[in-house]
């Protein structure tokens, strides 16, 4: 039953760099919110401010209405899982998990019960006596998660916890973490630069750039209805073309499409999966490369003026390099002055 409130929090580093710029976010009870952005977008700094490892320059952070803005980490009801797992290598798994409980003066038998329960939860029952270096990367990260969970934090903080793992393990662990999070109904803030992670795990995604929020929405909305060209380009693959609108039509690189907005410059956005191709003599584009991914194919197309777009096709074997094709977008969006102005 915990709510995290971040109100106009800023962080300036010495030298005047703004890592986080007047950021606000409410995380509802039991919700998993992903902070998604490229490196340097301030997402990790923000998470570390919630955990108490960075002191905000201004703003307010509360958990269940209680001001924790300037509390040291040891006095916050938050639990953090670090990218590098940060297990204490001079202790075995049991001692890693029991350390926080001992600091809370928990009784011996209760510690044993709690540690066994949490090891069971992360699927490592019976691993208590292992040394940390005897565990695989995935197991180490599970112990790190268990170390936070055993203290029953009000807010769980995850700082790119899967970044050091390989692709397969990452996918499996993110399902496990999501399952555990939903079972415990624990309010969670999750930092990642991987859009797959964000799209598959989050209740809501915060797309960050240069310390500011670009968009906060459910994953499907962020994908289908990006509010800024940055979000459009960052989430999934998007063809973005700079052009001009005149008399309700968009023009650039031989393309000419209906776009019912006022005259002036605009950025046209088309998803590869919403772009139909048809073979044509003297078509708008030339096939540069065809890639077959098994489930689908991707066709790279050269338009005039050195513009390249990608189109997703069901049957990549129908296309080959050098062919001339016409494009027909089924859905487009348009941006002007950094904001979405049209969506079909």
């Amino acid at each position: 039953m915990s709510v995290l409130k971040i109100s106009s929090v800023s962080k300036y580093f010495p030298g005047g760099t703004k890592a986080v710029d007047s950021f606000s976010l409410d995380v509802a009870d039991g919700e998993l919110v992903c902070l998604l952005g490229p490196s340097g977008s301030g997402k990790s700094t923000l998470l570390r401010m919630v955990g108490g490892f960075e002191d905000p320059s201004s703003g307010l952070i509360t958990i269940d209405g209680e001001d924790i803005t300037h509390l040291p980490p040891e006095r916050r009801p938050t639990g953090m899982v670090f990218q590098s797992h940060a297990l204490w290598t001079h202790m075995n798994v049991f001692d890693n998990l029991a350390f926080g409980l001992k600091l809370r003066r928990t009784g011996k038998s209760e510690i044993r019960e709690k540690v066994e329960a949490v090891l069971d939860l992360v699927g490592l029952a019976g691993y208590g006596e292992r040394k940390t270096h005897q565990l695989s990367g995935g197991q180490q990260q599970r112990v790190a998660l268990a170390r936070s969970l055993v203290l029953e934090p009000k807010i769980l903080l995850l700082d790119e916890p899967f970044a050091s793992l390989d692709q397969h393990l990452r996918e499996r662990l993110r399902e496990e973490v999501r399952d555990i999070q939903q079972r415990l109904k624990i309010t969670t803030l999750f930092v990642t630069h991987g859009q797959d992670e964000a799209l598959s795990m989050a209740d809501r995604i915060v797309v960050m750039r240069d310390g500011r929020t670009e968009q906060i929405d459910r994953p499907d909305v962020v994908y289908r209805n990006p509010q800024t060209p940055f979000v459009a380009g960052f989430i999934g693959t998007m063809n973005l073309i700079d052009g001009e609108v005149a008399h309700g039509r968009f023009h650039r690189a031989g393309l000419s499409l209906d776009l019912p907005i006022s005259d002036g410059p605009a950025i046209l956005a088309m998803r590869p999966e919403a772009l139909d191709l048809s073979l044509a003599d003297q078509g708008q584009a030339v096939v540069h490369r065809v890639t077959d991914y098994g489930t689908h194919g991707l066709v790279d197309l050269d338009l005039p003026e050195a513009i390249r777009v990608k189109a997703m096709v069901d049957h990549p074997d129908r296309f080959s390099t050098g062919q001339s094709v016409n494009l027909a977008p089924r859905a487009v969006a348009a941006f002007r002055d950094g904001r979405q102005v049209f969506r079909s």
Binding site: E74, T78, F82
Partner: peptide, 12 residues
């Protein structure tokens, strides 16, 4: 990070 993790679980 090891030191931070210890702060995180409540150690001064």
């Amino acid at each position: 990070r090891m030191e931070e993790a210890a702060r995180d679980v409540g150690a001064g």
